[in-house]
Nucleic acid binder design. Sequence first.
DNA 1: TGTACAACCTCCAGCCACTAGAGGTTCAAG
DNA 2: CTTGAACCTCTAGTGGCTGGAGGTTGTACA
Lengths: 137, 137
Amino acid sequence: MFSIGELSLRTGVKVPTIRYYENAGLLEAPERTSGNQRRYSRSGLERLSFISHARALGLSIEDIRELVELASDPERPCGEAHHIASAHLASVRARIRKLKKLERELMRIVKISDADCVGECHVIQSLADHALCESDH
Amino acid sequence: MFSIGELSLRTGVKVPTIRYYENAGLLEAPERTSGNQRRYSRSGLERLSFISHARALGLSIEDIRELVELASDPERPCGEAHHIASAHLASVRARIRKLKKLERELMRIVKISDADCVGECHVIQSLADHALCESDH
DNA sequence: TGTACAACCTCCAGCCACTAGAGGTTCAAG
DNA sequence: CTTGAACCTCTAGTGGCTGGAGGTTGTACA
């Protein structure tokens, strides 16, 4: 049996965040002591690790809620879980593509202002004039 | 002279967002008609384009506020503007690195569950067990 | 000149995923 | 039995908008 503080230490998830997950319906409400403090079992620890790992992978609370439900219903987990994971993979890839565009754009802006840093400021000029951009955004 | 709606059409920034920028101190409060409606000049349009472009590049409102101040003070813009832009470039690169790690991780999870989709769900298993991860996060 | 109605105004609430603080209670070590 | 760290609940704030309520103005047309 772990207190919320011990659980926090073991998982690296902050105490208020654990309570938040409970409130959001991701984490089952644990037993309480007679004095109303939370006491977690091993399964609570495992569930929290699951949530924390999924969050680290960037899945939304909503996605995780769904995965948690699937996990507790062994009849129909795999297809849908797979769907959630691969949808998320696609969105991660889209974000990478977008950030790479930004990277190129920013490199250009920074490089120009490196080369020629007198008079008018090129950073500000480049930011002001979208027409100078190489890609759309 | 543009109404707020025209400005919105020309820049692609939504009307409530324009008001939000004004409120946040990014966009100068424009003239008003006798009936209290906003009327923008060309310089307002340019300023909003600047903001919108900088946002599209992922700069924070706070960063943009600073750039806007720098832009209006031609004494000391370049060094600081360059600093903001290159700090942002660094953070974009960090985000790309992080997302690429996630991509690898998710690919692994999705691939496993592709290959072997019977019995226990591997998506959920992989998410639950951080020890299976190849990289830290 | 009157009227209809789209566009405008302000203010307030909500979104996500936490995080921080106030103010009070409980647990456990000494 | 006392101390004080850790716990409890509840509320509010973060960033960057977005949407709605309820009321006013601008403008095109009859």
